[in-house]
Every structure is written in C-alpha cells, then in structure tokens.
C-alpha cells in the first residue's frame, strides 16, 4: 500500500494513477479481511476497485489523461504534512496496542451488540443488525446522502445532454 501511494505521488500520467488507486483499494480490501471486516472488504473491493475506477476513467476520457508538470513550490505542503504527521504519531503513543481486547472501544456499546443482537433481531450477522436496526436513523441519513449525490450528478451532467436530445428530435 505504501509503495502504490508513493508511485501515485511521483507519476504524472493520470491513467496510471487511476489504475494504481484501484490497486490501492484492492490492497485495502485484503487488509480489511485480515482485521475481520468481511462486510467492509466486500464493499471496498466492489466500490474502490470497481466503480470508482470506472468513474474516474470516465472523467479522464472527458478531461484528458496527462497531468501538467507542476511548477509550484512543494516545500510548504510537505512541511505541513510532515508536521501534522509528527503530531499524530506523538498522539498514537497513548493508543492501545493492535488487537488489545481491553481497549476502551470494546468496553462500551459493542458488548451489547455482540451479546444481544441475535436474540433481539434474529439476524446472525451483527453488522447487518446494527446497520439496519440499531442505527436505522444513521443509515437512513446515509441513503439520503447517496440519493442527493445521485441527483446532484444528474443535474450537473445532464443539462447539455437534454439540449442535445432536443436538437436530435428537431433533426429527425
């Protein structure tokens, strides 16, 4: 994953960059399987490696496929990134170790889901149960966001197409 990201930074061919970001998503999906997030890995593989790559390719077709070599200074962004990163690394020193069952995140809400969700919803997959039932409002909001994004894309991209369709009708 680190290697693909370094390549993405270095390269200027947008086509290669989009392909690499697909590979990056696939690697992320395999990592998600390792940490037991099977549902998430599923989605990441289908979305990241599939649909978002296709969408980016579609955008590339409309926008040209090479990046202009930037002539701007990159020292300041690099400095900001390094300083922020250093601050975050300092922050992780207090974090619980990877896989620690005593970590605070596992103490509060999760035991309820793990112990009771089968009896309360009769759905063995806890992720589905929490997604649709316990956090129903949350998911409703997310679906509304997706709905809005779809409408937004339609509004942005189909205006000229409608005009064109009228011309076609006139021609025919």
């Amino acid at each position: 994953m680190v290697l693909t990201v370094l390549l993405i930074i270095r390269l200027h061919n947008l086509f290669a960059i989009v392909m690499l970001s697909g590979i990056f998503s696939l690697l992320a999906a395999t990592f998600f399987v390792v940490v037991d997030g099977v549902d998430v890995a599923f989605t990441e593989a289908a979305v990241g490696a599939g649909i978002s790559t296709v969408l980016m390719l579609g955008a590339l077709m409309l926008c040209g496929r090479t990046e202009k070599i930037p002539d701007r200074k990159t020292v300041l962004p690099l400095l900001v990134a390094v300083v922020t990163g250093a601050a975050l690394v300092y922050g992780t020193l207090d974090m619980p170790y990877y896989g620690d069952p005593e970590a605070p995140i596992h103490q509060h809400v999760a035991p309820r889901y793990i112990n009771d969700s089968l009896a309360e919803t009769s759905v063995p997959n806890m992720v589905t149960a929490v997604l649709a039932s316990y956090r129903g409002y949350d998911t409703l909001g997310e679906v509304a966001v997706i709905f809005t994004a779809g409408i937004g894309v339609l509004v942005l991209l189909s205006r000229i197409k409608l005009g064109r369709r009228k011309e076609d009708e006139d021609a025919a």
Partner: peptide, 27 residues
C-alpha cells in the same frame, strides 16, 4: 425486527444500485 431489516436492506440496495448506474450513465 428481522422483517424490518430485510425490507430496509432492500430499499438500501435499490437506491445504491440505481444511483451507481445513473451516475455511470451520466458520465
């Protein structure tokens, strides 16, 4: 609960699939 989850998931699936196809067609 099981019935509700089933129906709701169907709604989610319908919206997600349709939005993805609509976006792709738009591009």
């Amino acid at each position: 609960q099981h019935l509700g989850i089933f129906v709701v998931e169907f709604g989610v699936g319908l919206t997600v699939a349709s939005v993805m196809i609509v976006i792709f067609f738009a591009f």
